[in-house]
Amino acid sequence: MMLVALAALVWGLGWWINLRLAAGPSAQSRGVRLAVPVIFGVTVLAVWELLVRGLDVPLVILPAPSLIAARFAASLPVLWADFVQTILKGALGGYVIGCGAAILTAVLVDRSDFLRRGLLPVGNFVAALPIVGTAPILVMWFGFDWQSKAAVVVVMVFFPVLVNTVAGLRETTAMQRDLMETYAASYWQGFFKLRLPAALPFIFNGLKIATTLALVGAIVAEFFGSPTVGMGFRISTSVGQLALDMVWAEIVVAALAGSVFYGAVAWVEKAVTFWHPSQRA
């Protein structure tokens, strides 16, 4: 009971510090804006640890954070192998192919108004569908290894990126297009000097959505069959063995990979579209 009481105390303390910080004079400063969520996160972890220990929650229901950290540290080689298999090969491979294909398709579609009007609604429609469901089919076609996972990722990221790129390439004003006309610019001059730069914020929007989809696709596809390595494989087998500390360790990897992946794309976006109002604030 001591630990449970301590958990309540820690929670109260963490919240009180954040209350003071949020109401304090430097609430808008960078440091505080970063510190508050971190304090909140640490508080949650501490409360989790204390409650699990205090209430003797069995490992098969919820392992304590310290246990997960220990498992993480002890299984680094396995986690790394899974990371390489699922993230670097499956997710990243599929992401590059899928996004590349989508952007190329969008460039071709952009030349024909008819195609654009036909493909945009279809693309929007498909983007809302549960495409992970294609995983069993693609596993059947491309085998158990990472190629089938990459294929699932390709299908998942293709339509969101396509729709955003096509929309972005239309995002010029009549005046900007007239200006190109007064220079008697060719189609490709207009494309590279005007429409592509103007489309970049939209393309990156699609690319950012696609990062999460790529990880989801690569992990879930492994539930339908995989070699004996990979994050989805590890999660489903560890769940079967009730080794929840391992499951959580994989989830930590997935969370880190997801944030870094997204962060990297967002960083490139900031560097490339620094001029856009949304990036200037």
Binding site: T212, L215, V216, I219, G232, I235, I251, A254, A257
Partner: peptide, 10 residues
């Protein structure tokens, strides 16, 4: 930004 669906089996 993270694939929280990975929690599902657990």
């Amino acid at each position: 930004t993270i694939p929280i669906i990975a929690l599902a089996p657990m």
